[in-house]
Design a protein around this nucleic acid. Structure first.
Lengths: 352, 352
DNA sequence: GTGCCATCTGCAAACGCTTGCAGGTAGGAT
DNA sequence: ATCCTACCTGCAAGCGTTTGCAGATGGCAC
């Protein structure tokens, strides 16, 4: 490129004008590059008058520090990697937004990766982020690909996991007790008198939160001498359309359930919609419960019983943990975020 | 630091084991650093046998390239900045996810910033991303703070805007024609026979998409000799709860509207919920229309009439534009993403 | 006027990777 | 056997900042 005759030695193509460097600012301000650097990141180390003229030069030139160079010299990227299954799920969007706010306030940026529900793909994303340069990694759940774990220990960067709190977690984590939450939901239904309880959930092999919830569901049933009928377990990921389809499937099965727990509110909403479409009364003919407590679950008709918790809180606490590992003493413990059963209109005692 | 007596010269604190470098790999593979570098990024330039032993050394050492160093040397970050109002809005989450997928496939990562609805804050985020090192910037809408625009031209990085297509856009853009969309929605209501039409929308001063839609609304009304009654304009940002509140407000006003257009589907959902709570029939007593075509709008009862478009398409096209500016010939033109009026059950001819 | 101290400032060496250039090697043609 | 030509590989010079160290500067006490 650049065969032109334009002198000056300057590039012309594609807006790649040479970037303004510390050196340029230094020259204009009549000081050395080190002084400029210090004026910007350790202001107290330079005399006020000098600092002032440096600042003037900076703004005159529109100088913007070069992040990569800074990261290289400082051996710190000021960037946190966050890998989530998908932004389409409100809870993860909330997590990211919350993380971003907290970390941003502490001077860190968020580099985002999407993993779908495939641990293998998650590991790939992690590699990408790692080689892009991150100081810490935030993940969802406690089940991860071996290669990811190895990478994490190799590079020695802190990892924090979210949404699943458990004592034996491999990394510091912040989340809810999914097992207890699953149990609470089913206990509620059992207390209402249900015995034929079904579950609409993601494949537990790819989703350790779902696995824990399912364990809670089974546990609660077992405690009353009941069990989850094989016909009562329908797999499906967290979209409303999926909830509809899964509910349709379920309604055609024998024995027919009197209550359905969904591991996501959107799925529950879809399930309710399907019921209405088939003139199956909720909660008259079948009770439906959701999970996560997204705002919408409260507005539907009927309002949906759910286990609610705050993804925003999870994000905030996760950010705290990350910052503790990075700038603190690294001792901050995992935190359990509370969940609460929200009894609403979509669940009731089973009909006769 | 490190006053300890542990030999080896190795650091011990906080997992900051010295990072494995190209040099280390080179030594183990018995070649020079350049060869390792080339083996990894220009494989065809190195003999297969050599490459193989390099790769072996790489995996043995668990070498991960240092992004900052690479970015510094290459003068390219392989990172794209994306600033959106908030992830809480489905459309923006879809945008980000789509962008991330497309850009990721091309080897770029996404650095995320949230701007709320404040242009000033957006500019701050842009500064942060810029100094973190990005090769291009994706924004929402075509109205931005002057300082942001100055920064963009100064640094010369490509900017692509989304969600608002217009011929006079300052940067290449991809989005819908918001004015036409607003007009289409109101024309639909006018065709049904409505004359008292209200709008629930964000403050147009902070949201140029809303401003354009409003222009469309006013235009459509004017064409039929009508106008938006001042009492019929209620401000409120895009959450369902806000829609409820705004609808409550609106129902108390005189003259009472016979139809309400909401500039977001969630707001429309909230509005419908509020109507039900007050036993105001939709569409019997009042028609309600939404905007964006999120999946949920189809599942509510009644299903909500809306102008739908694909945020995923916008993301994909925006990614194309970015890549064109970065790796292509930079000639790819702005693209208008189509919108479509989805007539559903929430709108009907006004009652007597 | 001299000497000492406290503050500031500049020098230069990293940080880890890329890449133009030149040298080396091996294989084929003569 | 010799020379030429590809094809590989290594050297070393950056890329823009940070930061330990030492030198410079100025103020103050004597």
């Amino acid at each position: 490129m650049g065969v032109g005759t334009t002198g000056q030695g300057g590039r012309m193509s594609k807006g790649s004008r040479r970037q303004v460097t510390l050196e340029d600012v230094a020259r204009l301000a009549g000081v050395s590059a080190s002084t400029v650097s210090r004026s910007l990141s350790m202001p107290h180390m330079v005399r006020a008058s000098v600092r002032e003229s440096v600042l003037w030069a900076v703004s005159r030139l529109g100088y913007v520090p070069h992040g990569a160079a800074r990261a290289l010299a400082r051996r710190r990227n000021a960037t946190i990697g966050v890998i989530i299954p998908s932004l389409r799920f409100t809870v993860f969007a909330d997590l990211v937004e919350s993380l971003q706010a907290e970390l941003g306030a502490a001077g860190y940026s968020v580099l985002l990766g999407h993993a779908g529900s495939d641990l293998r793909y998650e590991a790939d994303q992690a590699t990408a982020l790692l080689s892009r340069g991150i100081d810490a990694l935030v993940l969802v759940g406690n089940a991860h690909d071996q290669s990811l774990e190895r990478m994490a220990t190799n590079t020695g960067i802190p990892v924090v996991t979210t949404f699943d709190y458990r004592l034996d977690a491999p990394y510091p984590c912040v989340g809810i007790d999914n097992q207890a939450a699953g149990r609470a939901l089913v206990d509620h239904l059992l207390d209402l008198g249900h015995t034929r309880i079904a579950a609409l959930m993601p494949d537990e092999r790819f989703n350790d939160r779902a696995a824990r919830r399912l364990a809670g569901v089974r546990g609660a049933l077992a405690d009353r001498g009941l069990a989850l009928h094989p016909q009562h377990l329908v797999l499906g990921d967290g979209a409303a359309e999926v909830g509809r389809a899964a509910m349709a499937e379920l309604l055609g099965r024998e024995p027919s359930p009197s209550a359905v727990v969904c591991f996501s509110d959107l799925v529950a909403i879809g399930a309710v919609v399907e019921c209405r479409a088939r003139a199956v009364s909720v909660p008259g003919a079948v009770s439906v419960a959701g999970f996560s407590g997204i705002g919408l679950a409260e507005l539907t008709h009927p309002a949906i019983t759910t286990v609610s918790f705050s993804a925003v809180d999870i994000g905030r606490e996760a950010a705290r943990l990350v910052l503790d590992r990075l700038d603190g003493d690294g001792q901050a413990p995992s935190v359990e975020v509370p969940h609460r059963l929200e009894q609403r209109a979509s669940t009731a005692a089973p009909g006769p």
